[in-house]
């Protein structure tokens, strides 16, 4: 009887905590909706954007084959300004850490193809997924895209190059092609229809060769070609478990890593030699 009572007490407490949690979450949502996570400062309407990501941490494990993320959100239409004739568009960008990258161009020298000129892009996104309800140039103007760094070609490609290299545009295009081939720049254009006037979602695949670090998901809401709201969500890509241990060991203690690699080779070679002795 006592035991039963204790159980019941525990159960009640548990229920209580759930309801508190629900209340808390509800309050947070209310706060988010009321004050807005968006900044439609230059817009005339007060349509808002609420968005989130299915996972905020992507872990690369030793069997990592990539990870699928869902970006979802809702347009919180202002009842007074909602217009049924207006065209709403959403653009979602997921960008990886901005890392310096050297782009090299091959030229034919003495009959063989050799890396010759190179340009270093100092802060281009290492990873970039772009989803939009329509092709970018149908949504808005090039100026708006460039101002908000939306689109592969409209990033700020700060670069360092030696004198005599004039074809920077060619290097930018080469950079983008390489990234697309590696699956590190992905275009999901036309594949993200608005589920309704208010709901949208994009399915995003993070491939295995993704660089680690701080990612950001940016969501832009356009109404008749005008940017009326933006929203950001952070995402961290980390190496977890075995692969993280190996990678960090190799980079932080390279001498010990080298010795360990030698020991493993010597031991396994010796083991093989003993096992197959017949």
């Amino acid at each position: 009887m006592t035991l039963f009572m204790q159980n019941k007490t525990a159960l009640t407490t548990h229920n209580d905590s759930i309801s508190w949690l629900q209340l808390f979450v509800g309050a947070m949502l209310l706060v988010a909706a009321t004050f807005g996570l968006s900044n439609p400062s230059h817009a005339t309407t007060t349509d808002k954007l609420v968005a989130d990501i299915s996972e905020h941490e992507v872990a690369l494990r030793y069997s990592f084959t990539g990870s699928d993320l869902i970006l979802f959100g809702a347009i919180d239409h202002d009842d007074r300004s909602i217009s049924h004739d207006a065209i709403y568009d959403v653009i979602i960008n997921v960008k990886g850490p901005r890392l310096p990258a050297v782009v090299r161009k091959k030229d034919k020298i003495a009959g063989i193809w050799v890396n010759k000129d190179n340009v270093t892009f100092t802060d281009a996104p290492s990873f970039y997924i772009q989803a939009s309800t329509r092709p970018l140039n149908e949504i808005t103007t090039e100026d708006v895209l460039r101002a908000n760094q939306i689109g592969f070609a409209y990033q700020n490609y700060h670069y360092e190059a030696s004198d005599g290299i004039t074809n920077i545009d060619g290097f930018v295009k080469g950079f983008i092609r390489n990234k697309e081939d590696a699956g590190l720049y992905q275009l999901v254009e036309d594949h993200m229809p608005l589920l309704s006037k208010t709901l949208f979602r994009a399915d995003v695949h993070i491939p295995a060769n993704v660089p680690v670090g701080d990612f950001v998901a940016e969501i832009f809401l356009f109404k008749d070609g005008q940017l009326i709201a933006t929203e950001q969500s952070d995402l961290v890509v980390v190496k977890k478990g075995f692969s993280e241990v190996v990678y960090n060991f190799a980079h932080q203690h390279p001498a010990f890593y080298g010795l360990m690699a030698i020991m493993i080779a010597l031991m396994s070679g010796w083991l093989a030699g003993v096992l197959v002795r017949d």
Binding site: A250, Y257, G258, A265, L266, S268
Partner: peptide, 29 residues
Amino acid sequence: VTSTVTFLHSVNTHTVDVVLAVLLLIGAV
């Protein structure tokens, strides 16, 4: 010599992949 090389490449360029080496080794033996 290959031990020395393994050590030097580990220190200079961090390019020795132990996991890859072990996987190749299993098949090779």
